[in-house]
Simulated scan of single mutants.
Amino acid sequence: MGKVAERFVEDISNLSDSEKYVFYYADNHIEQVKNITLTNLAEILNTSNTTIIRMCHKLGLQGFSEFKFILASFSNQKKTRENGSLKEDYLAQLTQTIHAIDLRKMDYIATKILNASTVIVVSVGLTKMIGEYIGKRLIQVQKPTMYAYESHIIDLLPSFIKPNDVILFVSMSGDTKTLVQAAQKLEYSGCFMFAITNHGDSALSQLMDTNLSSDIPTVSYAGYDITSRSGLMIQADILLEVYLKKMLERDK
C-alpha cells in the first residue's frame, strides 16, 4: 500500500472503478501528478475532468488542487533507497528510534494503563496488525483490553468509553481520517488518550494527551512505499515491557 493509499485507506472503498484507476495512478506517480494540471491528467488516463474531481470529493477534499498539495507533502518526505544501503538505512532508523525514546514518558503511560479499567487499542489499515499485537500482549497479562479496527466499531466508541479508560491509537501517518475523527469525538470524554505514530506533529498526535513517535523518513523503492513500520513496533515493545515491570512491582 502506497503512502497516499494509507492516508485515504477508509475512503478508497467509496470510489468507483474509474476513480480508483485515477487514485492508484496518482499514488504510483506522485512526482508526475503533483506537477500537472487536471486536464493533463485526464488526457493521460483517458478519463474526464469530472471523474477526477468526483474522486477528490469522495476523499473528503475540496478539489484537485488540494489533492496535489497532499501529493506534494508526501513527495517532500520521501527519499529513494540506494543500492547497497539497505542494512545501513535500517540500522540508522532503529538507532534513531531507540535514542529518541523517553522512558519517563513510557513510565507515565504505563502507569495510566495500569490504573485503567479497560485499554482500547484503535488501528486500521497496515497498522491493524500492530494494534492487534499490542492488544493480545495486554490480554496475556490479564489487562482488560479490546481492539477496534472496523469503522462501525470505532464510530461506537464514544457511546461506551468510561473516563477511567485508556485509548491507544496506532497509526503510521497519524493523519488517517477515521482515527482523527474518532479522536476528535473522544477529546472531551475524560479518558486518557495516547498514540503511537511515525509523525509527532500529525493531526492525530495533536489530539492526544501524549504521543510516542519514531519519525522514520518515508522511503520509496521503484515507486513503492517501503517505509519500515519497525519504529512503531519498537515503541510498542518497550512500552509493554515497562508496563509489565510496573505491574509485577505492584503485585509483589
Rank of each mutant, 00 (worst) to 15 (best):
residue 197 T to K: 01
residue 227 T to K: 07
residue 108 Y to Q: 11
residue 107 D to L: 10
residue 171 S to N: 01
residue 101 I to D: 02
residue 62 Q to Y: 03
residue 181 Q to C: 11
residue 95 T to W: 05
residue 31 E to C: 09
residue 208 M to P: 00
residue 229 R to L: 06
residue 122 V to I: 15
residue 24 Y to R: 01
residue 119 V to C: 11
residue 60 G to D: 06
residue 72 A to Q: 12
residue 17 D to R: 13
residue 209 D to Q: 12
residue 29 H to G: 06
residue 80 T to N: 13
residue 240 L to F: 12
residue 47 T to H: 01
residue 12 I to Q: 05
residue 59 L to Q: 02
residue 139 I to D: 12
residue 10 E to S: 15
residue 220 S to N: 10
residue 16 S to Y: 10
residue 201 D to C: 09
residue 145 T to P: 08
residue 23 F to E: 01
residue 170 V to C: 05
residue 13 S to D: 12
residue 232 L to C: 03
residue 217 P to A: 11
residue 136 K to C: 11
residue 127 T to R: 00
residue 170 V to H: 05
residue 88 E to G: 07
residue 60 G to H: 07
residue 100 A to V: 01
residue 194 F to P: 03
residue 19 E to T: 11
residue 48 S to V: 05
residue 28 N to C: 05
residue 169 F to Q: 05
residue 187 E to Q: 14
residue 72 A to V: 06
residue 210 T to D: 10
residue 117 S to G: 12
residue 66 E to F: 00
residue 53 I to H: 04
residue 203 A to F: 04
residue 135 G to N: 07
residue 36 I to A: 07
residue 130 I to N: 01
residue 69 F to E: 13
residue 70 I to N: 06
residue 58 K to E: 09
residue 187 E to C: 10
residue 172 M to R: 04
residue 252 K to R: 13
residue 134 I to T: 07
residue 158 P to T: 10
residue 196 I to Q: 02
residue 177 K to L: 14
residue 202 S to M: 00
residue 62 Q to G: 14
residue 10 E to V: 08
residue 59 L to D: 01
residue 241 E to R: 13
residue 224 Y to H: 14
residue 64 F to K: 01
residue 183 A to P: 04
residue 4 V to C: 04
residue 46 N to Q: 14
residue 110 A to W: 01
residue 100 A to N: 14
residue 109 I to W: 04
residue 7 R to W: 08
residue 176 T to P: 03
residue 203 A to M: 06
residue 4 V to N: 03
residue 158 P to Y: 08
residue 104 R to S: 13
residue 144 P to H: 10
residue 9 V to E: 14
residue 241 E to W: 10
residue 184 Q to S: 12
residue 141 V to R: 15
residue 41 L to S: 07
residue 11 D to P: 02
residue 161 I to S: 08
residue 47 T to D: 06
residue 184 Q to E: 15
residue 111 T to Y: 11
residue 219 V to Y: 03
residue 245 K to L: 13
residue 93 Q to I: 09
residue 45 L to P: 02
residue 194 F to N: 00
residue 119 V to D: 01
residue 24 Y to D: 04
residue 11 D to V: 03
residue 27 D to W: 02
residue 75 S to E: 11
residue 218 T to G: 14
residue 178 T to K: 07
residue 81 R to L: 15
residue 25 Y to I: 00
residue 81 R to A: 13
residue 226 I to E: 08
residue 52 I to N: 00
residue 58 K to V: 09
residue 129 M to R: 10
residue 105 K to A: 04
residue 168 L to K: 03
residue 36 I to C: 05
residue 49 N to R: 15
residue 188 Y to V: 10
residue 210 T to S: 10
residue 93 Q to W: 12
residue 29 H to C: 09
residue 69 F to N: 14
residue 234 I to S: 06
residue 131 G to H: 02
residue 117 S to P: 06
residue 233 M to F: 08
residue 248 L to M: 13
residue 198 N to F: 02
residue 8 F to I: 01
residue 131 G to T: 04
residue 156 L to N: 14
residue 143 K to D: 08
residue 174 G to Y: 03
residue 23 F to I: 04
residue 70 I to G: 00
residue 181 Q to F: 11
residue 243 Y to C: 02
residue 236 A to W: 05
residue 1 M to Y: 06
residue 108 Y to P: 01
residue 53 I to V: 14
residue 42 A to I: 07
residue 134 I to P: 05
residue 247 M to E: 15
residue 81 R to I: 13
residue 141 V to H: 13
residue 123 S to P: 04
residue 53 I to Q: 06
residue 143 K to S: 09
residue 120 I to D: 03
